[in-house]
Simulated scan of single mutants.
Amino acid sequence: MLAPVMARARRRAVRAGDAEIDSGHLLHALLESDEQVLGLAAPQPTQATRLMGYLAQRSIGFGRDWQQGEGESADEGAGIPRQRLALQPGLSDAAEAAVGRARVAALVRDAGEADPLDLLAELASDPGSRAAKMLKGAGADPSEVAVRARQR
C-alpha cells in the first residue's frame, strides 16, 4: 500500500535534484495519496493551510529553510547549486527508518503490509526528521499526529 507513496516521493526528489528521498518528500507524497492524512496531520484549518503552504513552497523551491537537513550537505544548503541526478535517489536514514518502523507496526496489527497511516505515525514520531519539523512548523504537535494516526 506504500508503493504509490514511495513512487510519488521518488518523483519529487528526482524533480528537485535531491540526492535522497527524505521524510519531507514522504510526508508530501502521503498528503497527496491519502485523504485521511491531512485531517490527522493537521486537523485545524490553520494548520492544514500552513502545512500545505510549506509543501508548496518546498516544491517550487522557495522553502530554503527546508533545503538543508536529512541527507544534504551544508554546501548544498548554503546556496551552491545542486546537479540533477541521473540515478534514482535512495532513502535518507530517517526516511528508511520510518518506513521500516511502519512495516513493523503493520505486522503488529496483523496487517499484510504498512499503509499510509502507519507511515504517517512513524514520520511524526521521529522529532529529528524533516517531516516532524514541517508538522511542528505548521502548528501541529508531531507526537499528537503519531497518536491520532495510530488510533485510526
Rank of each mutant, 00 (worst) to 15 (best):
P116C: 08
L123F: 06
D75G: 02
G112H: 11
G39Q: 04
D126M: 06
V5S: 01
Q67I: 12
L38K: 08
S23F: 06
E35Y: 01
A105V: 03
Q47M: 11
A138F: 07
G137Q: 05
A138Y: 03
R84D: 08
A132E: 06
V108A: 14
A95I: 07
V104S: 10
R84F: 13
I21V: 15
E35V: 13
L40K: 12
V5N: 07
G39R: 10
R58V: 14
L31Y: 01
T46H: 13
R50I: 00
D115P: 01
S23K: 01
D18M: 02
E72S: 14
L85C: 07
E20I: 12
M6L: 15
R109L: 08
D141E: 15
S73T: 15
R152L: 13
D115I: 08
Q57D: 15
S143K: 12
E32A: 15
L123K: 01
A124P: 06
Q44Y: 11
Q57T: 08
L120N: 07
A98K: 01
D65I: 10
E76C: 03
A7Y: 07
G69H: 08
R109V: 14
D93N: 05
M52G: 11
P116Q: 01
A124K: 07
E20C: 09
E122Q: 15
A78Q: 12
A149E: 09
S125V: 01
M134P: 04
L31M: 12
A16H: 08
G53F: 09
G77M: 02
A114T: 05
A140P: 08
A29T: 05
S129P: 06
G139L: 03
R15K: 04
G17C: 06
P116N: 02
V37C: 10
L85R: 14
L87S: 13
G69K: 02
L87Q: 13
G77E: 07
W66Q: 06
E113N: 08
T49V: 13
P116F: 09
E70V: 02
E32I: 05
P127Q: 09
L117T: 06
L26G: 03
S59Y: 12
